[in-house]
Structures are given as structure tokens and as C-alpha cells.
Amino acid sequence: MMAAYIILAVVLFMILSLILEWVDRKVYAHVQHRVGPFVAGYHGILQPVADLLKLMNKDEVVVEGSDEQLLHLMPILSLTFVLFSLLFVPVASVEGLLSFKGDLIIILAFSVLIHLFYIVTGLSQRSIFASVGAARWGQLLISFEIPLLISVASVALVANSVTLSEIVSFQSNSFPIILLSPLSFIAAVFASLAKIEKTPFSVPDAETEIAGGWLSEISGRRLAIFRIVTDLKYLLLSALIVTLFLGGPLGPTVSGIEPLLSVFWFLVKLVFVAILLSYVRGIVARYRIDQVIRFFWFKITPLAAVNLIVLIFLRMGKVI
């Protein structure tokens, strides 16, 4: 029974991630006064599927001298890990499909492991652009993981737990955590943007400088899988922000159809956060790598740290 639920959840998450990609592209296009995808389906809603099918049909070209076994392994591993960490996110009730003590840290650990696979992908191609992209991924990673972890730590401090179901039930008993940690919310939004390599921080695959970066020699099915992984990561981070700061699936409910309304509130908050991420992506230009690191270390990390320190003092004074 559990296996059937998990398979159903995986399929639904994939469909949801493709719809989110459409939302992202539409919002991004409208910010720039374009119409965006318009041909396939209603207002182009099937365009991500069409892109995926096109990539699936293409030939895979492997440059001579690159490590082919690792290049086969890495897309599959990253897809597995991102899907596995999505199963922990609570959608229909307070608890996710999988849940155990400390699952928030395991989600963060898996999201770091996905970047490890990205870097290995970049380094196992025989291309200078891919190597530069992989090195940039590492530099980007040490700049945005710190504020992300600090902001998650302040959430864990307020809820007094590192388990997602306990954080959500804390919020159902009192209030959404964003009221106590607004600065952490801002830091988490920027760190998420960097994590899904959207425009202001799209340094590792900068098309204008290093021709696609860590993906420059990847083609065909592997590129398709990496695109799904990016979409699922977009879904995962939006869902994580919704769960941690906005109360996850909580909202006004009518008794009898609670799971349905939980899913509805979750999707409403998810689309709100996704539109916020796309809008930020649309209105700013891309930073250089040194500017990104300076931005995260000297602006976003202090922002998250101030919030955490204030919360620690509040906890010591027994206010929360």
C-alpha cells in the first residue's frame, strides 16, 4: 500500500514540477513584456512536456575522454535524491509521506548531495567550460548554504524541533513562523534562488561566458533528466519555504474534507512562493561570481544571523 502511495506521489510531483516550470516561464516572460510559451496546450501549459519529449528523442553525444560511467550515473542519482527528499514534504496532512526524527536535516543533506553530483558531472566531462562551471558551483555553494542553514536553524529554534511534522504542528497550534523570522524568510528566498541557479545567481551555467557551464557537453536524455531535476528542485525549495515559514498545508478547513483543503492551501501557498521566486528572477540582472559571494557573505548571512541572535535572546528571556 505504501509503495502505491509513493509511486502516485512521485508521478504527481513530476506533473506538479512541470506545471511550476510553466508558471515560472510565464511569470518571467510577463515581467519582460513577452507572452512566453503560447502554442502547446492552453496558453502553452504543455510546453515543458514538449521540450522534455524533444530532448528525450535527441542523440546523446559524449566527448572523447570524458568519464562515461559517471556521466550515466549522475543524472539518475540526482533524480533519485530529489524525489526522495520530496517525499518528506507534508502536503495532505501534518505529516509527510515519509517522516522520522530529524528529517529536516536529511532533506538539507540530500540537497547538498545533489550539488555534489552536479560538480562531479562538470568535472567528468572533458571540457574547460564544464570544469569552470563545476568550480563555480562549489564557490556558489559555500556562499549560499550558510545563510540557508542559519535561516533553517532559526525556524528550528522557534519550533524547538528539527522534524518537519513537529514544525508544522507547532505552526497549527500557534502562528506561521514567518511572523517571528521575517529576515530569515528573505534569506531563505535568496538562497533558494541561488540553489536553483535562477538568473541573479545563475553563475554555474552562465550562457554568455562559459557556454552552459557544467552542462555544456550534456545532451539528449541526460539533459532532459537534469532539467527535470532542476524543476523538482524548484518545487522542493518552494515547498520547503512554504512548510517552514508559511505553515505548510494549514489553513481554514471544513470538517469532513480536511485532506482536500490541505492540498488546496498547500498549492495556493506554493504557487505564491513560486511566483515570488520567478518575479525576483525577472527584475534583476545576473551577478558576477565575486559579486554573488560578496552579496551572500556580507548582506544575506548577517541578515539571517541577526534574526537568529534575536531569537536566541528571546528564547533565553523565556518570551517564546
Binding site: 536529511i106 560538480i119 562531479v120 569552470v132 559555500i142 548554504e145
Partner: peptide, 19 residues
């Protein structure tokens, strides 16, 4: 252990390799 030693330390090693 999973977060630090399986995630971050190999990334730092790989970044050093790449750089």
C-alpha cells in the same frame, strides 16, 4: 554525518581539484 561528511567535505575536495 550524512550532511557534513557525505555532502560538504567531498564538495570542498572537488572544488579544490577543480580550482
Amino acid at each position: 554525518q550524512l550532511a557534513i561528511y557525505a555532502g560538504f567535505i567531498p564538495i570542498i575536495i572537488l572544488v579544490t581539484v577543480a580550482l
